[in-house]
């Protein structure tokens, strides 16, 4: 365990909590993709299947349970909460899950560390996490709506991915047998997609700055 890894996990948790608390406080989920949230829950569930038999540390187990619980709560708010679900932008959030799930499943069957059910589901979750933000990016591009909620959420998610890369570099330098190509390549793809989001975020920020200038 190193400082980059701990920072990354805390940032990841913060990103989810920021989203959850803002939905709770404002009773609105405008601009948030339910598809992305459901894909993240699928990522957590398929990756943390080992929760019941593979005890690594209390730290890991607590984070796994908290990630699953908090992302379930976000989905509950968006689908079931009477006020919040009315603010969900259903008409623009039309990305098809299967376009992501099928390629990730096929890739996990072909490129994996070991051909076993648990290993393939774990690998699937790594691939799926890399692309799960795509429905959110598509929704953003369609609505051109980058408000504080989506901005802060994706900013924290991007920081979380950046700290995981630092963690891998640190571990590669300090642990003799540390190597994880599947995770590294997927992580790089994922971080690249967040950079795309940052680009739109900065553009929207610049435009709103320009609009405030006196003409």
């Amino acid at each position: 365990m190193n400082i980059f890894r701990v920072s990354a996990d805390i940032l990841h948790l913060l990103s989810i909590l920021v989203l959850l608390l803002k939905i709770h406080a404002t009773k609105s989920c405008a601009g948030i993709s339910l598809k992305t949230q459901e894909l993240y829950l699928a990522v957590f569930v398929t990756r943390y299947l080992d929760l019941f038999w593979n005890f690594h540390s209390l730290y890991n187990s607590v984070f796994k349970v908290v990630y699953i619980a908090t992302s379930s709560m976000i989905i509950w708010y968006m689908k079931r909460h009477r006020g919040v679900k009315q603010t969900y932008d259903k008409d623009h959030d039309t990305f098809r899950y299967l376009f992501l799930i099928v390629p990730c499943a096929v890739l996990a069957l072909i490129v994996n560390g070991r051909f076993s059910l648990f290993e393939i589901l774990w690998t699937f979750s790594i691939y799926l996490e890399a692309v799960a933000i795509l429905p959110q990016l598509v929704l953003l591009q369609r609505t051109k709506n980058v408000d504080n909620l989506t901005g802060n959420y994706v900013f924290l998610l991007g920081l979380y991915r950046a700290f995981y890369i630092l963690n891998w570099i640190y571990r590669y330098a300090t642990e003799p047998h540390y190597s994880a190509w599947i995770v590294w390549l997927s992580g790089l793809v994922q971080t690249g997609l967040y950079l795309d989001f940052f680009y739109y975020y900065l553009q929207a920020w610049k435009q709103s700055k320009k609009l405030q200038l006196p003409s």
């Binding site: 890894r5 996990d9 990841h12 080992d50 593979n54 690594h56 540390s57 890991n60 984070f63 796994k64 990630y67 560390g113 774990w122 995981y164 963690n167 571990r171 642990e175 047998h177 540390y178 190597s179 994880a180 599947i182 995770v183």
Partner: peptide, 10 residues
């Protein structure tokens, strides 16, 4: 304990 290193990450 024979799990690969990347499995101890979240």
């Amino acid at each position: 304990a024979a799990e690969p290193a990347e499995k101890d990450e979240l």
